[in-house]
Design a protein around this nucleic acid. Structure first.
Length: 574
RNA sequence: CGGUGAUUGGCGCAGCUUGGUAGCGCACUUGGUUUGGGUCCAAGGGGUCGCAGGUUCGAAUCCUGCAUCACCGACCA
C-alpha cells in the first residue's frame, strides 16, 4: 500500500475526550472515529488490525472444532421473553419496534438465537456435540460507555455456543475452548492470564475469564504469589483468619462520637486502627409470602469492603442486592447510618469471617453520635451467622492453600462459561438420546472481545511515539521510508523495487510516497506502530545498503539491498 | 441513574463577566523555500457560535427549555 493511495488520517493533537492511552492512540493513529456515545467507525488502519485479530480467532476456533455461523443482530422480542431475559436484562438491552409495532432487541449476545436455531436443526444425539460460533457486532447499552472501543456500546465479538448430552461432553469442549483461547492470546502476543470468574448475568456455573494485564484494566484480579491460582477479585474466597478469637478483656461501654460517621472518622476520633472497628450495612432480605422484605445486617471489619456478589448468593438475601434506605435504617436502629451497629438488633445478622475474629471492637451504638467500645461476640451479640462476604485484600492467604494474594489489574478479553441447561430448558431444546428418550441439552458459551483486544493490545504495547504492534496484528508489517524520493531518481527506483519485492513475498508494506519531510514520515509510521521500518537514503545507497529500524527495540542495522527480503522474512518469523 | 462541566471552521481552543454581528494555533488550498526527525515565507478558502424560544434597536455573549458529549460517583454508613 502506498500512503498516497491510502487514508492515513493521523492527527497531531489528541482529541479532548480521550482518557486512556489506547483511546488516544487509536484516534491519533487514524484507526477509529467516534460517531456517538460508545459507537465508533473504523478507518482503514483500524479495520486492518481488527481483521488480523479476527483471523487469528477464527483460525483457532476452527482448529478446535467449532463451526462458523452468522446470526442476525436484530432479534425478535419473543425469544427474549421466552428465555426470561426480556425482563431480567433490563437497561442493557436496547429495545425498539418495527413499523408493525412488534418488539425487537439489538443483540447484546446470542444465546437465545443460537438455542432457537439448534432446537430447530438438531434432532438426534448423533448430531452432538456441536460447537457453533460467529464473529458479529453486538450492542449493549452500557450505563457508562468509556475508554473508546474498550467499553463501547457497539463492539465486535466472537461468541461460540456448544451443545451436549451431558457434563462429560461439555467439560471436553470447555477444556478445548480453554486451550484454544490460550493459543489465541499467545499468537496475539499479549501478556494474559486465565482467571476463575463469576458467570454473572449470562448464567451458569463454571467459568473462566481471560485477562490482558494492564494498569488501566477495569477489573481487579487476585493472584497467588506461590501458585497458578488466579481469580477475579469478586470470586476470590477470603479465608477465615488463622487462630482463635481472643477472650473479651474489656467491658461494653458507650462513647460520644459527635460528627464521626465514617469508619475513618471514628478511628481518627478514638485514636484506634480501622481494623478494630466493625461497620454494619443493611440490605434487603428475600421477600416473604406477603412480599415484605426484612432487613438483614452485614458486619464487616472497618478496613474491609463488602463483596456484593458473595452476599447476593447467600440464602435469604434479595437478588439483585438492594441496600436499605436511610429511612429504613432509622426506623430499625433509631439512629442514622453513621451510628448503627449490631448490638441489640433482632434481625438476621451476617458477620464476615474476619470481623468474627475481632474482640473488644467498636461499633455504632444505634444512637446518633455514639459508638460502643469493648464489644464482643456472643457476650454482647448472641445471634449471628458467619460467612465470607468481603473482598480479598493484598496479603490475604490464597484460597488454593499456597502463598498469599496479590492484586493486579486486567482487561477482560475472553470469557468461557459452562451454562448448563439455563437456556436449553427455557427454550425447550433437547434431542432423543440413545434410549429414545427426550433429553434437554447442556450448553457452554465462549466469548472473545475482538474490538476490545485491539485496545488492550495498545495498552500493553506503546511508547511516547505511539503504538508498537506485535507482528501478528500490525496493520502493516513493514514501513518503507524513502528520504527525498521526489528529488532523487535513484532513491525512487530502489524504493519501488523493494516495495515490489516485499509485496511479492507476501509481506504487507506501507510505502510512504508522500512528498513529506522525513520527520513527518518517521513520526507517522511510528505513531501507527508498524513494527519494522526500512529507510532508504543517499548515503547508504552508495554502499548498496538501506537502514532497518525496529519499532520496539529502536535497533538500527544496515542491510544489503539484495538481502532485504530475506532479512525481513527472518525478522518476521522470529 | 445521581453530581459536575462542556458544546464557537476538520481538530485543539480564546471571545461571554461588561450585548454592537467572530478570532488564534494546527490542518487545508496556491506559489516559493527546505529535505535523515513534525522546515520557513507569502497569499487564500472555510463558521446558521448545539437546537428552540424569550429579553433587546441589536445576542456567541443575558434568560428559559431541550439535545448531545464528557468526567466523577453509584457498598465503604
Amino acid at each position: 500500500m502506498r500512503t498516497s493511495q491510502y487514508l492515513l488520517s493521523t492527527v497531531k493533537e489528541t482529541p479532548a475526550d480521550a482518557e486512556i492511552i489506547s483511546h488516544k492512540l487509536m484516534l491519533r493513529a487514524g484507526m477509529v472515529r467516534r460517531l456517538g456515545s460508545g459507537m465508533f467507525s473504523y478507518l482503514p488502519t483500524g479495520v486492518r488490525v481488527l481483521r488480523k485479530v479476527e483471523d487469528i480467532v477464527r483460525q483457532e476456533m476452527n482448529k478446535a472444532g467449532a463451526i462458523e455461523v452468522l446470526m442476525p443482530m436484530v432479534q425478535p422480542a419473543e425469544l427474549w421473553q421466552e428465555s426470561g431475559r426480556w425482563n431480567t436484562m433490563d437497561a442493557e438491552l436496547l429495545r425498539f419496534k418495527d413499523r408493525h409495532q412488534r418488539d425487537y432487541v439489538l443483540g447484546p449476545t446470542h444465546e437465545e438465537v443460537i438455542t432457537d436455531l439448534v432446537r430447530r436443526e438438531i434432532t438426534s444425539y448423533k448430531q452432538l456435540p456441536l460447537n457453533l460460533y460467529q464473529i458479529q457486532t453486538k450492542f449493549r447499552d452500557e450505563r457508562r460507555p468509556r475508554f473508546g472501543v474498550m467499553r463501547a456500546r457497539e463492539f465486535l465479538m466472537k461468541d461460540a455456543y456448544s451443545f451436549h448430552l451431558g457434563q462429560t461432553s461439555l467439560q471436553q469442549t470447555y477444556d478445548a475452548m480453554y486451550s484454544a483461547y490460550c493459543n489465541i492470546f499467545n499468537r496475539l502476543g499479549l501478556d494474559y492470564r486465565p482467571v476463575l470468574a463469576d458467570s454473572g448475568a449470562i448464567g451458569g456455573s463454571v467459568s473462566h475469564e481471560f485477562h490482558v494485564l494492564a494498569e488501566s484494566g477495569e477489573d481487579a484480579i487476585a493472584f497467588s504469589d506461590a501458585s497458578d491460582y488466579a481469580a477475579n477479585i469478586e470470586m476470590a474466597e477470603a479465608l477465615a483468619p488463622k487462630g482463635t478469637r481472643p477472650e473479651p478483656a474489656h467491658a461494653l461501654s458507650e462513647v460520644a462520637t459527635p460528627a464521626a460517621g465514617t469508619v475513618a472518622e471514628v478511628a481518627e476520633l478514638l485514636k484506634i486502627e480501622r481494623n478494630i472497628i466493625a461497620k454494619t450495612l443493611f440490605v434487603l432480605g428475600q421477600a416473604d409470602e406477603q412480599g415484605q422484605q426484612p432487613l438483614v445486617a452485614l458486619v464487616l471489619r472497618g478496613d474491609h469492603e463488602l463483596n456484593e456478589l458473595k452476599v447476593e448468593k447467600l440464602p435469604g438475601i434479595a437478588s439483585p442486592l438492594q441496600f436499605a434506605s436511610e429511612e429504613q435504617i432509622r426506623v430499625l436502629c433509631a439512629a442514622g447510618a453513621g451510628s448503627v451497629g449490631p448490638v441489640g438488633l433482632t434481625i438476621t445478622i451476617i458477620v464476615d469471617r474476619s470481623a468474627n475474629t475481632l474482640a473488644d471492637f467498636v461499633v455504632g451504638a444505634n444512637k446518633d453520635g455514639y459508638h460502643l467500645t469493648g464489644v464482643n461476640w456472643d457476650r454482647d451479640i448472641s445471634h449471628y451467622q458467619v460467612a465470607d462476604i468481603r473482598n480479598i485484600v493484598t496479603g490475604d492467604a490464597s484460597p488454593c492453600g499456597f502463598g498469599n494474594l496479590v492484586i493486579k489489574r486486567g482487561i477482560e478479553v475472553g470469557h468461557i462459561f459452562q451454562l448448563g441447561e439455563k437456556y436449553s430448558k427455557a427454550l425447550k431444546t433437547g434431542v432423543l438420546n440413545e434410549e429414545g428418550k427426550h433429553q434437554i441439552l447442556t450448553m457452554g458459551c465462549y466469548g472473545v472481545g475482538v474490538s476490545r483486544i485491539v485496545a488492550a493490545a495498545i495498552e500493553q504495547n506503546h511508547d511516547e511515539y505511539g503504538i508498537i504492534w506485535p507482528d501478528a496484528i500490525a496493520p502493516f508489517q513493514v514501513a518503507l521510508i524513502p528520504m527525498n524520493m521526489h528529488k532523487s531518481v535513484r532513491i525512487a527506483e530502489v524504493t519501488q523495487q523493494l516495495y515490489q519485492q516485499l509485496t511479492a513475498a507476501g509481506i504487507e508494506v506501507l510505502f510512504d510516497d508522500r512528498r513529506e519531510r522525513p520527520g513527518v514520515m518517521f513520526a507517522d509510521m511510528e505513531l501507527i506502530g508498524i513494527p519494522h521500518a526500512i529507510v532508504i537514503g543517499e548515503r547508504n545507497l552508495d554502499n548498496q545498503q538501506v537502514e532497518y529500524k525496529n519499532r520496539r527495540s529502536a535497533e538500527k542495522v544496515l542491510l544489503d539491498i539484495t538481502n532485504v527480503v530475506a532479512d525481513i522474512k527472518q525478522k518476521l518469523t522470529r
